[in-house]
Write a protein that binds this DNA or RNA. Structure first.
Lengths: 136, 136
DNA sequence: AGTGCTGGTCTCTTTTTGAGACTACAGGCC
DNA sequence: GGCCTGTAGTCTCAAAAAGAGACCAGCACT
């Protein structure tokens, strides 16, 4: 992560690599998007945007996530300030996860991409099929 | 990828896991977003949204990507129909990569997220700092 | 006393990624 | 001719990340 790192900034302006003085954290795209675009993050944010869920509920909602990755992804989302974690000292202690204001704000932007994905799912699948055909 | 797979569909409706009959490809979020949210994909799409670039230009633009991952990511973007690859039979053959209409359309949605990232970079960094402080 | 639920952690294996050498061809330079 | 550059990649091997599943403690129900 040291040495030559490129910065990509707003309005499509692309800055050339700097030989020094620049670092990863100065590039919002890489720094912020990386926290959002994990394999499971969008799915969990989407779920929590609907309503708060507990650990086990999320696990059942997304059956092919491992407990390990669920714990880890939720922890990352909490660290970045998107998710709030609250422990209820009930008999079997329950842990509820919910979106923070920052999380809801982020979801607003993410939602654009989700909607695009729904609308263009078929187009992407066609492109894939065509590509695979020419390669075979 | 077989067995119990959850479907997450539009408008925040969340479908429970189906024990059978459902597969990965039926969930636009997972199918489409996965192709976009790789580590390097957003960066490359962003670059190509500005103007077409050749292989070596992209490599210099994003110095910390390996040739291997650049080749692979461009190939995936091409497969999903976002990027067009054109070979010019010049003396040293050049290969130019550009966004397709589908790619530009997708970038429109992705751009929302990029803008959000820029606007809220500081908030996320603060959240992280606060979280790390409580953990230490 | 056994079973299930709560929210995790720990370890082991498989997959993905990264770093860097290697290919092949063409042109310029000395 | 011999050497270096640049073109766009591929190949191999090591490191990092993800997945699978065992295990834990505490409490409730039967």
């Amino acid at each position: 992560m040291d040495g030559k790192i490129v910065n990509l900034k707003s309005k499509l302006e692309i800055y050339k690599a700097m030989t020094d003085g620049a670092n990863f954290a100065d590039c919002p795209v890489r720094d912020v998007i990386h926290g959002i675009n994990g394999k499971w993050s969008p799915l969990l944010v989407m779920a929590l945007a609907e309503k708060p869920y507990r650990f086990g509920e999320l696990r059942r909602l997304v059956p092919d996530i491992s407990q390990r990755m669920l714990t880890q992804t939720l922890n990352e989302l909490q660290r970045d300030g998107y998710v709030h974690r609250e422990v209820f000292p009930t008999k079997p202690p329950g842990v509820e996860y919910s979106l923070t204001d920052l999380g809801r704000s982020m979801f607003g932007a993410l939602h654009q991409l989700i909607q695009w994905a729904e609308l263009n799912h078929d187009a992407v699948r066609e492109a894939r099929a065509g590509f695979d055909a020419t390669q075979a």
